[in-house]
Design a protein around this nucleic acid. Structure first.
Lengths: 260, 260
DNA sequence: GGTTCAATCTCGTCT
DNA sequence: AGACGAGGTTGAACC
């Protein structure tokens, strides 16, 4: 059976359905009055009230109130769910080993409970992130400027990683910091720290650059920039290049390639 | 009526239930085969598959696959939900103004759909966070060391905010950085930047400190510290004080106080 | 409205 | 298993 629903079951009937659902590795949906306690990375309690509970076959456990996107309490995938009856009540426990975390739900009055085996073989296709921007710039470096040659991605320096390191037409070093969203002051501070890090780095290649009197150019790459960040890059001698993150889904891309 | 469930309804029946639920400001739970498109801060699409959809009266819209804690697609509170029939199918749209975001769900085969008015007047009580640590240290400064006197919280410097600024018994300035979880290298870098910021700050009070040859002490406060961070604080002359975030719920605290 | 920062962040990725 | 960084982060507090 693909799914089953019980309306206003007593806790014993609900318990049987929960056990059956777990055997079948189905997803449980429960609308009931419950009380919740959590102890683990933090500590919390939530008094009696009606919530929607989702228990997924991967061990994820979610408790939703009627507000917000985030669940009020939860456990991550691979948690172990256990259910049992205590007096007239259904207890749902979700346990995790490392870190040690325990979620305990006491269920009083059940409006409905269901389980369902969800057939879903699709994964989300998405675009418009920093990584997509990085891929695009490596493929088409002229988007930054004519003659730009990217050398290294994720180049490690003292305070983090330089998104893209490369050279311009005159052999000057170019330090690119990418942001998929509007860049703020923090992005400018970040790139400024990377430039300082490079100045302080003892590295044959960088020594050679300095010996040849080559400059180190800092480039902030983002779709747009906030006003105070704009002012700061001018003071700091950092450059700004406007690039939109590519908004092409892989599926679309594939179709386009197949067309040729 | 508090809740309603329909099993295997056609899309027209489901549409009527959705409209009724929205009039009653109820929470909708839907288990169905659907296809999802999102366009806004990013771009995504998800092909046909069975998912659980939650639509809350505050405008939150969640689509859950049978894995993970996070919804595969969602809209935040205050989004506007619209539903309509297109051919044989039910379309659910969720729209947000700033930033402009549109979530479109095409629903094909519905296993069940329900709405429920959730009675819940409780809020989550929780403890064990950075703020609780900060409160505790302000109340009981000797947890840091005998004679420590906190002066300012959230003191603004170039690269952020100093969690707690204070003085020791000898009048030296103390810069506290709090972490509610195990502190890593990034926490040490953060406190190091704050110390540099203070060195560079032109401020009468700080000038006086320097004139009196007072030191500026950096203190990392966390339950524990990672090995590489431990090495770094030794090099940097930063101190580490182990403090557990308090794990006392307000409810418990109140009970304790009432007992006296 | 925006801006900043913590979070039981989650989740992927890499060591 | 631990560490690190991005995220349509979310959510809250403050301006």
């Amino acid at each position: 059976m693909k799914y089953k629903i019980l309306e206003k079951p007593d806790c014993e009937k609900a318990y049987e359905l929960v056990e059956e659902a777990m055997r079948k590795r189905a997803t449980i949906t429960l609308f009931a009055c419950c009380k919740v306690e959590y102890e683990g990375r933090a500590l919390s309690q939530l008094n009696w009230g009606e919530r929607i509970i989702l228990i997924k076959p991967d061990g994820s456990f979610l408790i939703h109130q009627d507000k917000k996107v985030e669940p009020v309490n939860w456990q991550p995938p691979k948690s172990k769910t256990r259910s049992y009856l205590s007096g007239e009540r259904l207890i749902l426990e979700s346990h995790r080993r490392t870190p040690k975390e325990l979620l305990t739900v006491e269920v009083r009055q059940i409006q409905f409970i269901s389980y369902a085996n969800m057939e879903d073989f699709e994964e989300l296709e998405q675009a418009g992130y920093e990584k997509d921007m990085s891929d695009m710039i490596m493929e088409r470096p002229h988007l930054i400027e004519e003659g730009f040659t990217p050398k290294t991605r994720e180049y490690s320096v003292e305070h983090g990683f330089i998104d893209i390191l490369g050279k311009d037409n005159d052999g000057n070093l170019m330090v690119l910091e990418l942001k998929a969203r509007k860049a703020g002051v923090s992005a400018v501070k970040q790139i400024r720290r990377y430039l300082q890090d490079l100045e302080n780095t003892e590295n044959d290649y960088l020594k050679e650059c300095k010996a040849q009197k080559k400059k180190i150019r800092g480039i902030l790459v983002a779709p747009s920039i906030m006003e105070d960040a704009r002012e700061m890059i001018e003071e700091e001698g950092i450059e700004f290049v406007s690039v939109e993150p590519p908004r092409e889904l892989k599926r679309d891309k594939k179709v386009t390639l197949d067309a040729f």
